[in-house]
Amino acid sequence: MTSLLSLDRVSKRFRGLVAVDAVSFAVPEGGIFAVIGPNGAGKTTLFNMIAGAMAPDAGSIAFAGAPIAGLMPDAVCRRGVARTFQLVRPFPALSVEDNVIVGALLRRRDVDAARERAHALLRRFDLFDRCRQPASSLTLPDRKRLEVVRALATEPKLLLLDEMLAGLRPTEIDRMVAILRELNSESGLTILLIEHVMRAVMALASRVLVLDHGTVIAEGAPEAVVRDPAVVRSYLGAETL
C-alpha cells in the first residue's frame, strides 16, 4: 500500500517545551490510522501541523506526494485534507443545512448544486430532519456529527478526526464507529484519528501510533500495541488489560 500522508521527523517547540519531537509515520491510503497517548502528549499539536493551523519547526509533511508543511489551513483543505476540532466548531447561527453547504461549496461554485450535495450527506447522517435548525440548537452528539458532515462535504481524501468520540454515550460511539467504517470501506476514505476511547480505536484502526511527551513510543497493529509494556506503563495502565 502506498502512503497518502507521511511525516518525516516533524518537530514543534513552544518556547522551551518540545511538544512534538521528531515524529515520523506514514498513513497508508485507504487505512484508518489512530494516534493515541496521554493528555499533553502532543497529539493535537501534531494534528494542527498536518491541517496547517501551525507550521512545524523542523521536518517535512507530505500529502499525496507533495509537501504541505507550512501551508495555510484553507490550502491544505483544498488539497483534500478535512479536519474536525476537538471542541466542536460548527457555525452556530447558521442552519444545519447552511453549515454543510459552506463545506460543499469548496468543490462546486453553484449554491443549488452544493445544497443538493449537502442534503444527500445530511440524509445519510440522519441530520436531514434538523436541516433548518440553527447549529447552536443541536445536542453535542449531533453537533459532532454535523462537523464530520461539513468536513466530508469538502470531499477530502484524508479526514482528520480530533477526539470525535469524547463525551459521547456508548450507543452513540457505536453508531459513529459504524458510520466511519462504512465511509472507509465504501469510498476508500483515509482516516486519521486522535482518540481516547480505546474500544473505538480497537474496533476501527488498522494501525495505531502511541505518542508520549512528544515522541513515538510504539507503532503497529492495535492488538500488538496495547500489549506493549511501554504503552501500558505510560498510557493505558494495567487495568485496561
Partner: peptide
C-alpha cells in the same frame, strides 16, 4: 448573501478558523 461569497462571509463571521479549515480563503 444567496451566492457562494455570501455563504463564505457568514462562515467567516461565525468562526474564522473553522471557515479556513473548510477551505475558505478568508
Amino acid at each position: 448573501i444567496g451566492s457562494r461569497i455570501g455563504y463564505y462571509w457568514l462562515a467567516i463571521r461565525e468562526d474564522e478558523q473553522a471557515a479556513r479549515s473548510a477551505g475558505i480563503d478568508t
